Simulated assay, not measured.
Amino acid sequence: MATQTYTVTGMTCSHCVTSVSTEIGQLPGVSAVQVDLPSGAVTVTSDQPLDQAAVAAAVDEAGYELAR
């Protein structure tokens, strides 16, 4: 198992959390997504480390941005 933490900008409510969690959760191998709304931290547990570009694309699809 691999755990990675990303920072997502632009989230302001529980709907934002749900959108980001859903999109990242659909990536292959992802088993859990935890979002801390106040800090924007998104912790992803997966079978193997995820490609950051794939995570960024999922976050973008949800309407937010992965902090660089």
Rank of each mutant, 00 (worst) to 15 (best):
M1D: 11
M1E: 12
A2H: 12
A2K: 05
A2G: 00
T3M: 09
T3A: 06
Q4Y: 13
T5Q: 09
T5S: 13
T5Y: 13
Y6L: 01
Y6R: 02
Y6I: 08
T7P: 01
T7F: 14
T7S: 11
T7G: 02
V8Y: 12
T9L: 09
T9Y: 07
T9D: 14
G10E: 13
G10S: 11
M11R: 10
M11Q: 09
T12P: 06
T12I: 04
C13T: 09
S14H: 03
S14F: 01
S14P: 02
S14E: 14
H15Y: 05
V17E: 10
V17W: 04
V17Y: 05
T18F: 06
T18I: 04
S19F: 03
S19R: 05
V20D: 01
V20Y: 05
V20R: 00
S21D: 13
S21L: 09
S21H: 07
T22I: 06
T22P: 03
T22G: 05
E23P: 13
I24Y: 03
I24R: 00
G25Y: 04
G25F: 06
G25E: 07
Q26K: 15
Q26D: 09
L27A: 01
P28C: 04
P28H: 06
P28D: 11
P28K: 07
G29K: 07
V30I: 09
S31C: 01
S31K: 06
A32V: 03
V33M: 02
V33K: 00
Q34G: 07
Q34L: 05
V35W: 05
D36H: 08
D36S: 09
P38H: 15
S39Q: 10
S39W: 11
S39V: 12
G40K: 04
G40T: 08
A41G: 02
A41P: 08
V42F: 10
V42Q: 01
V42S: 00
T43A: 10
V44T: 14
V44R: 00
T45M: 02
T45V: 08
T45E: 15
S46A: 04
S46D: 13
S46N: 11
D47K: 05
Q48P: 03
Q48D: 15
L50P: 00
L50Q: 06
D51N: 15
D51S: 12
D51H: 14
Q52D: 10
A53W: 00
A53K: 13
A54E: 15
A54P: 01
V55L: 07
V55D: 03
A56Y: 11
A56I: 08
A56V: 04
A57P: 03
A57K: 13
A58S: 03
A58Q: 04
V59E: 04
V59I: 12
D60L: 05
D60N: 12
E61D: 15
A62Q: 09
A62V: 12
G63T: 01
Y64N: 10
Y64H: 07
E65G: 09
E65Q: 11
E65P: 02
E65H: 11
L66M: 07
L66V: 10
L66T: 13
L66A: 06
A67Q: 14
R68L: 14
R68N: 14
